[in-house]
Design a binder for these strands. Sequence first.
DNA 1: CTAGATGCAAACTTTTTGCCAGCCA
DNA 2: TGGCTGGCAAAAAGTTTGCATCTAG
Lengths: 148, 148
Amino acid sequence: VEQVARELRRRGFRLTPQRLAIVRALAMTDSHPSAETLYEELLPSFPTMSLATVYKTLNTLREMGQVMQLEFKEGSTRYDGRHPDSHAHLICSACGRIQDVEVDPFSSEARGAIQALGFQLARYRFDLYGLCQGCQQKGASATMKAAR
Amino acid sequence: VEQVARELRRRGFRLTPQRLAIVRALAMTDSHPSAETLYEELLPSFPTMSLATVYKTLNTLREMGQVMQLEFKEGSTRYDGRHPDSHAHLICSACGRIQDVEVDPFSSEARGAIQALGFQLARYRFDLYGLCQGCQQKGASATMKAAR
DNA sequence: CTAGATGCAAACTTTTTGCCAGCCA
DNA sequence: TGGCTGGCAAAAAGTTTGCATCTAG
């Protein structure tokens, strides 16, 4: 949070209460919230907060490289304020949870293929869809119940 | 095209001229078109074609697993009718071109990490952003011109 | 024939923009 | 004080839906 605040100042942006609240909220969660979710979360403490402000702030932070933006078609765009660099995501198709994968995902074949095509890689987005451990168990018991 | 047509019939869908045209257009291009692009492409040959029909057909094909849908926030959703299975994409940030990468992108570490978390992988989306070979060259000459 | 598809327009969702008042530096 | 910001409402962009008409099978 400190670091983002400093960076905002350094770039000539004002450190308003709203911006600070959004930065804090992003830093406190692992849950990759959407703009709407953030807005609802902040509304109790900032009754005058508007969705437009959330969007504007998120866009500012993204341009600063402080958050990573993840677009989905199901539901809306989600934001990751803790890992602004490229990394892989595990996305549960049942509960919508997004977990981060910390290891380098690239196979050496893939790196080779990219290089062979002369492509200059800047960043990537790697989303893995499937079932998280919890939903597999829930699904299994649901199936069993249905079978009776 | 044949195969998709058969599959449509088998599932009890009608093989309308509009559907056929969309399937053909998708099969003929490597360029991952958007719904809008497809619509404009087909309009000359099907003056009555409507955007809604394109969307409906694309959704049908997606549900059949015959096209892969790629959502982006810049511009719109794009469709891949030639490689309906998961694979990596090289996306040029300058010209917007999307190339397919055919090799398996996963590192063994990544597979290990996913397994360790108990995640059951169904499909993935791997988008690599950067500059394609052509745009790197254009960029280089543009820079040189600017330097003079 | 007739269930299912098309085409039009209107609805919907998500995100962005214009504008003025207000506040931070 | 003076320009950046926040908040509101309205616009924009992309996609979906309702419904009357039409058509493939």
